[in-house]
Design a binder for these strands. Structure first.
Lengths: 110, 110
DNA sequence: CTGATCTACAACCATTTGGTTGCACGATAA
DNA sequence: TTATCGTGCAACCAAATGGTTGTAGATCAG
């Protein structure tokens, strides 16, 4: 059926990116304020390269964006990815409510 | 720091479960109606065992629950998982708004 | 009872993921 | 200029993921 290939792989990346507690923590932090990549790296018990990879994953998912400042890269939260994720869950919620309404209707008729 | 280990691994499972288009499709379908595992399996170009594994992943994430009916297992949507995922994204949204408000405040002062 | 159907699970395989170390390069500080 | 810092990337490794086939236990139909 190939529903909407682009959107689907985009959602794959989005939820995949959110499926790691270190990455969720990074999202939380850079949404509230600004951090350089090495600033983030200093927060976690893993190598700089590992954190840099996490940031790259978040960037591909549009959950985060980077901006050069001198020799640093400043990481900031990107609202776009979060909104798309929320929109999908809202859609599911909608389907759920429609089902509940349908059930209520059947009960009222019967 | 071990913030909240249980909740974190629970969220790992949740978003991991949503990070696959077949599983998102299953969630959509079983939220709207009822399907047996083999009923679901007939919809996709993969083996029964693969679909059964997908359902198991969704079940571990509390996005879906099963109920025996005769020799079939009926799969239904579980609202709990969806709600937890939405709640986290709402939380991020909240942080985002607080940041926006803080920035506005600074601008007003300055 | 016998055969077909629905489910679950184990074993296996290729690919991806999450981590590591090491190296190269541009920007900064001394 | 030279040394240091921040970053990105490649190569590597162990574990997890997403698929397969095969087997076995329940339940239903004839």
């Amino acid at each position: 059926m190939v529903v909407d290939q682009l959107r689907e792989t985009e959602l794959d990346r989005l939820f995949q990116a959110l499926a790691d507690s270190t990455r969720r923590d990074i999202v939380r932090r850079v949404t509230a304020g600004e951090y350089s990549v090495s600033g983030l790296a200093s927060l976690y018990a893993m190598s700089f390269a590992a954190v840099q990879k996490h940031v790259a994953v978040l960037e591909r998912a549009s959950l985060v964006s980077k901006k050069k400042r001198g020799r640093e890269q400043i990481v900031r939260g990107d609202h776009g990815g979060l909104q798309r994720a929320r929109r999908l869950l809202d859609e599911y919620e909608q389907i759920w409510r429609q089902r509940a309404a349908r059930m209520a209707g059947i009960l009222a008729e019967g």
